[in-house]
Design a protein around this nucleic acid. Structure first.
Length: 490
RNA sequence: GGCGGCGUACCCAAGUGGUUAAGGGAGAGGUCUGCAAAACCUUUAUCCAGCGGUUCGAAUCCGCUCGCCGCCUCCA
């Protein structure tokens, strides 16, 4: 397996510290507002990495933190006239609701900052003792000039950063680039006791404390640290500085960062206000569509968000379920396997396609989690399966192959956590999302009515019924001796 | 100002030194069908922003130009 490591700027062979085991820490959210699509991308991408590594045989320990105390939470609490605890609780719940709907699995440990204050204080004390940090009027800052590797992740030097015009000068800091490990609390703000007085932790220290605590079994380094690319600087840079200054050892082996979602080519972000919340997107699209959309581009590339793109993803998934529908029909047709077997050549060709898919899929995923390519391979088999079914295959072997193809597609889909419903569940779900004014019973009634008309060769009435349903977003497809319904996509 | 990334068909998107440049959508033609839909087949980039260079050979490496974006401040 090869992964792109932000630290080295290269794709590298992935070698875990402990053979067969992977420790992965991913920065979660700050619970101060509802999540937007950008949060979904990060969560989904790292969820898929975890699923794939487990599928490949790794034992993965996944830690994802929740920041439940910070400036933005304090601000929000003040605005709403409630406590920071209430704000954090409310938005943590919202976050879990969104993630559950999107099919993002829980991490093995989901630590909260406020539950690890003593651990943070210990690290800060150690950093002060070794001269890497200093306290001023109840604040504690990290002394970046003391850490010679500062800037190695984001590839910039202290001089470069000083040259940047946007460094705020703070009287209390020795160097404007020094960052807070501990902040003295202002009146009315939440606080914890510390050797430097009442205060609260800075943002970066929680990840150092919690990753060390929950990755401890690995030693003082762990394998993967992930998050959005916007965390590279300063957050992850600062984590490296604190952690490596404290332990004197490398903090993390592989730094993985996902790219942004853009709107009109610009980064989707809170500050630009061009964001779409997960909730509002899920009002219009099935969660599987959102997942597919986010996995149809490589995780490090930007993805342009648009309704057109989501609709295309919807069409792609529909192609999958339409094929499964055909596969199921075939498997339920007993005459198919009892007949004389089909030509050996056709059968062998399909067998080859099925057996090569898994390998191609894994090759793609092994190459820095190339989900876009992996999905491309899946659709190659979809085409082959349809082609095989078009050839009206017969015989027991043909039946086994069709069943096998479905099995493989389901197995690989599970890694991405898509393609794991029945076609019927897919269409029922679309019915809700698209506000089709019909129940399934209504549709079946119409189909029965139309069936009568068709038997009488009353094509005018049959077409009228079909057209009326289509206007409601319901598609009828006539099969050999039955009629299937679907929900119109795209 | 410093650092970094991107530019592949009508649209989205893989591919980063070597047979026919994945896959999906859209378009055109065909097969199938009562007609459709779905599916399948054929077709749509002699070419990968432009120019130059390295090489037997480049979309893929190097240089320059143009365009777009990101980070340097909170941010997934």
């Amino acid at each position: 397996m090869r992964v792109y490591n932000t630290l080295t700027g290269k794709k590298e062979e992935f070698i875990s510290i402990n053979p067969g085991k992977v420790g992965m820490y991913v920065c979660g959210i700050t619970a101060y507002d509802v999540c937007h699509l950008g949060h979904a991308r990060s969560a989904i991408v790292f969820d898929v990495m975890k699923r794939y590594m487990r599928y490949s045989g790794f034992e993965v320990r996944h830690v994802r933190n929740i920041t439940d105390i910070d400036d933005k939470i304090i601000k929000r609490a003040a605005q709403e006239g409630v406590s920071t605890v209430d704000i954090a609780k409310k938005y943590t719940e919202e976050y879990y609701r969104d993630m559950d709907r999107l099919g993002v699995s829980r991490a093995d440990v989901e630590p909260k900052a406020t539950e690890h204050i003593p651990e943070m204080i210990e690290i800060i004390k150690g950093l002060i003792e070794s001269g890497y940090a200093y306290s001023v009027h109840g604040d504690v800052y990290f002394r970046v000039s003391r850490f010679s590797d500062y800037g190695k992740l984001s590839r910039r030097s202290l001089d470069d950063m000083m040259a940047g015009a946007r460094v705020e000068v703070d009287e209390k800091k020795e160097n404007p680039l020094d960052f807070a490990l501990w902040k003295a609390s202002k009146p009315g703000e939440p606080w914890w006791d510390s050797p430097w007085g009442k205060g609260r932790p800075g943002w970066h220290i929680e990840c150092t404390a919690m990753s060390m605590k929950y990755m401890k079994y690995m030693g003082e380094s762990f394998d993967i640290h992930g998050g959005g690319a916007d965390l590279i600087f300063p957050h992850h840079e600062n984590e490296i500085a604190q952690s490596e200054a404290f332990t004197g050892r490398p903090f993390v082996r592989y730094w993985l960062h996902n790219g942004f979602i853009t709107v009109d080519k610009e980064k989707m972000s809170k500050s630009l206000g061009n964001f779409f919340t997960i909730k509002e997107i899920l009002d219009k699209y099935d969660p599987e569509v959102v997942r597919y959309f986010l996995l149809s581009t490589h995780y490090r590339s930007p993805i342009e968000f648009s309704d057109a793109q989501l609709s295309e993803s919807e069409v792609s998934i529909d192609r999958y379920y339409s094929t499964v529908l055909r596969v199921n029909d075939f498997l339920n047709e007993p005459s198919a396997i009892s007949h004389q077997p089909s030509a050996i050549k056709v059968v062998e060709e399909f067998e080859k396609q099925i057996s090569s898919l898994k390998e191609k899929f894994m090759d793609a995923m092994d190459d820095d989690f190339n989900t876009a390519l992996a999905l491309g391979h899946i659709f190659e088999l979809i085409r082959e399966a349809n082609k095989f079914l078009d050839a009206k295959p017969r015989g027991q072997k043909a039946g086994e192959l069709v069943a096998k193809s479905k099995e493989v597609l389901t197995e690989l889909g599970n890694i991405l956590n898509i393609f794991n419903r029945t076609p019927h569940e897919w269409y029922i779900s679309l019915m809700k999302v698209k506000n089709v004014g019909f129940t399934e019973g209504d549709i079946l009634n119409e189909i029965t009515k139309r069936h009568g008309a068709r038997q009488k060769k009353d094509w005018a009435l049959a077409d009228k019924i079909r057209n009326e349903l289509e206007e409601k977003g319901i598609i009828l497809e006539d099969k050999k001796d039955t009629t299937k319904w679907k929900i119109k996509v795209g």
